[in-house]
Design a protein around this nucleic acid. Sequence first.
RNA 1: GGUUCCGUAGCUCAGUUGGAUAGAGCAACAGCCUUCUAAGCUGUGGGUCGCGCGUUCGAGUCGCGCCGGAAUCACCA
Length: 595
Amino acid sequence: MESVLKGKIKEAVKVLYNSEVTDDLIQVQETRKDFKGDFTLVVFPLLRFSKNTPEKTGESIGNQIISTFPAISGFNVIKGFLNLEISDAWWIDYFRKMASERDFLNKCRVNNPETILVEYSSPNTNKPLHLGHIRNNLLGFSLYRILSACGHKVIKTNIVNDRGIHICKSMLAWKKYGKGETPQTSGLKGDHLVGKYYVLFEKEYKLQVQDFMNKGMAEAEARNAAPLMKEAREMLLKWEADDREVVNLWKMMNSWVYAGFDETYRMLGVDFDKIYYESETYKTGRDVVISAIADNILYRNGDSSVWADLSSEGLDQKLLLRSDGTAVYMTQDIGTAIARQNDYGFNKCIYVVGNEQNYHFQVLKAVLKKMGYSWADGLIHFSYGMVELPEGKMKSREGTVVDADDLIEEMKLTAREVSLELGKLSDYSDEDKEDIFRKIGLGALKYFILKVDPRKNMTFNPAESIDFNGNTGPFIQYTYARIKSVFRKAEQMGIISNPSLITKVKAESKEIVLIKLLRKYSEAVSEAAAGYTPALIANYCYVLSKEYNQFYHDYSILGEDDPAIRNFRMELSKVVSEVIFSAMNLLGIEMPERM
RNA sequence: GGUUCCGUAGCUCAGUUGGAUAGAGCAACAGCCUUCUAAGCUGUGGGUCGCGCGUUCGAGUCGCGCCGGAAUCACCA
């Protein structure tokens, strides 16, 4: 419609002022709610052609268009804005096509699909997932759904940081103090069990450091000298030397962690197509780095450490191999990126990683390009903001970390409480009820996180539990469940709607507003994909739900006597429910049929 | 100190490529269930868009400078 309209305006300007206008001067936007009309032409840029006042210019163009374009039923001019009114008949006809063809779900498909890897989650194997990981996982998974909806081939991937000194710490503590404790014997989830020993290590280690410091040692020295740290380092060396006992312990404890993670992922409803392990990819990175020295791309320092000089790219010197030859984080990310390009030949690889690593990814890209990998242009750091508590950053040392499993459980409990209080599900089996509680609790959590612009830091206040009213997941789920309820009732009454029977009924303004909103769905998905912003879809869902609830409140659907109007309202409701379902699905949020 | 990001109502957040009188929710207060689900709907109050200058017919949005906050600048990950 906009492009047709722009064409007409262009014609009108030519007829009126004998001037060819470039497209960028024709600014058509949706008319603001508080004015009459559907589309608004901003006339200021056209004054140079009309050589007249904004009001007169608007009048002339409006008159010219209304006489040549039947879809326009009227217009008004306020200041420099020409508000064009589209006839209800046109909107209803538009809706009839939309409802009949049901093509609103894939209008956002691109012409040239790409192969895109989305990396998200990226946990360490020494502690359970927390709220920050939840944001990460939800963003990554939603991005996968959104890009897939646009027709891209998307591979969900994860990089597990399963090696290094941190995991040796948990292993060592378990060996020393664990007395053979397992998830089975303790009843603890595997990741929590391992996390417990990581915390225990830090606690004992701190005591040792303090002890040395009390004897007059400097802190840095004490940290190095503490026997626990020495032992952990020895363990790491043994691991790198493939020491059988250490490797077996490592495998066992990691398997506990993975079982724990899998459960959290299952609860969150996220999964992966391909998981990479740092323990496997760091070697590739190391080999590539070493061969790049021979090509003079990288250089070796006097102490035999290896560096990249990125000063010509406006960056700094970056270490890639330590003087003892071992790999750093950057090295393994180089290896992983190359492995992924070999495995999938991706056009883009999107890293869902917190904004604290902005510099890291700038360097990663620069190093790969320096090494001659032109595909490195396709590496994209989807940098999202931190989740903070009212008193600031979450700190594991101070025990202020919000545990993922706890939070999920809490959300389900709250959903149960609210639901039971409202008592609308009394005829459901316990199993069905629990499933609904889960959908609502998780829906509230996911929406709470995804509705915020990913780039921004966000605040989570544990004291005020996540809301179920207003701009929330359950509000949107409720809107959906209401529509479903209408159709259950319709079935009982034997009323069936049919999109092909939509005729030019007299529509209420709220109904036209809904049609306009539905029309914008694919646009919202495209924009969310282009800008990597699931929040746009969340906001779209809210606006649509809010508008529908007003309509629902003000008008009767099944109680409407005029069969044509009833049919139209039923179809309108049905398409709204389908769009809500589909949009929320892009956020990974499930919809209950009743609640 | 260098670089990057952020600053909108008491709180949590929206705000399209610069467009008209800056919007929601929560919290507070006042209403609406004999009717398709009240997890809803309606209304009231609440703002120096951090501050200043500039570009423009027009700036919450763009540029520059301050103020405030965050991240990063490791032979950590």
